[in-house]
Nucleic acid binder design. Structure first.
Lengths: 216, 216
DNA sequence: GCATATTTGTCCGTATGTATA
DNA sequence: CTATACATACGGACAAATATG
């Protein structure tokens, strides 16, 4: 289904990219009038785009006050990782040797490794995210896949809070590789254990980083 | 001109209830002009309500054709149960003896039993749904709770396809009780096993019921 | 295949209520 | 308390796509 260039979907995509890139920092207000003028769309269309982004929890809709780029609290980070543990662990246990999810996960690790060699840190981060999304793909439920994509989009907000988002991802390339290796030998319990450690460490790092930013 | 009772949120709530009650059968189109006149809200407000319901997957938005009450395919039912298995199993394993989730689940079973004695089958269905929602509450992630609520709202569409939605829920009251008993003795593996059987049987029943309805 | 009517998509202007300065 | 800014909702208008004859 193709949308017009000025449609709500396209507007949401532009804002999504801008937020992920850090152009609009967490906490900044997205004024309807200013943005509708800036992006060349009507207020109604912009409001529809806001609704899409609010659904993804990238922006926060405060009643009668406006729309703001979401600022994650430590509670948000904890919540996100609790959800990821459930989904990714289920993915590990549903992952068979011939599962396309395993192939995709392995490909993501390889892409991350190559990007790291070239110093393309943004690509490393994207590949890291793709790896975790691939794990959940082993569970045969598109609804869970959609949720996982949403959680990972929200994670990008957390990454923005770290001093060095690139280094954050780079540290985990080898650990992703270890998970793939365990899955390839059919040792799902070992893979689940490695994943659990991964998530614990990543959560600790991000909670520490988010601790500095005061809520609202 | 009748004064509108409320905004988009209230309009969505009214439509949600009407759909769950079967007033609008799956597949029927929800005309903008007719409904905005019927509910006493403007077209813009109604469209806003449609977006909320589409987000919950209760209605389907076809570009330039309109909004329809969602008609679940067998693939949808399978997908829903795959997602429920992941979430509810995680809830079982996160459920401790002093967990509020266990208390809520037990209360839901008791409410279902009382309603069944009085022949209040609609209440039995509501309590059954509340039981499964309670299980997932043991997982400390609000994002998963929201997803579970969304999945259960979608499940109501599947229940509408059964010949006798009331009997469907009534059959499972005792099995819910058995799960609670297992959890109270701390035997989470037994509870998970009982839950797995429950979900398998329920899925089979609904897939058989949904098999008759052909997709548009 | 074509012309028509109907329905949806988008945008505008305005009025009202609410929160903030 | 007043003034400002903003979100919410309404009604109308026209464009675009679809359905119908």
């Amino acid at each position: 289904m193709t949308r017009s260039v000025g449609g709500a979907e396209a507007t949401a995509a532009r804002l999504r990219a801008a937020i992920s890139d850090g152009a609009y920092r967490p906490g900044t207000q997205l004024s309807e009038e200013r943005l509708s003028d800036e992006l060349g769309v009507s207020r109604n269309t912009l409001r529809e785009a806001f609704r899409l982004l609010a659904q993804e929890r990238l922006v926060e809709h405060v009643f009668h006050r406006g729309v703001f780029v979401r600022r994650l609290t430590t509670a948000d980070v904890t919540d996100l990782y609790a959800a990821r543990r459930v989904l990714e662990t289920a993915g590990i246990h549903a992952c068979t040797l011939d599962s396309p999810a395993l192939t995709d996960a392995a490909a993501a690790v390889e892409a991350a490794r190559l990007a790291a060699q070239d110093g393309q840190w943004a690509l490393v981060g994207t590949a890291d995210i793709r790896f975790h999304a691939a794990l959940v793909r082993a569970v045969p439920s598109e609804r869970l896949h959609v949720l996982m994509d949403s959680l990972l989009a929200e994670m990008r907000l957390a990454f923005l809070s770290t001093d060095d988002p690139a280094a954050f991802h780079a540290d985990f390339v080898e650990r992703n590789q270890a998970i793939v290796t365990a899955l390839r030998t059919g040792d799902r319990d070992a893979a689940a254990s490695l994943l659990g450690d991964y998530l614990d460490d990543a959560e600790r790092t991000l909670v520490a980083a988010a601790g500095g930013s005061a809520p609202h």
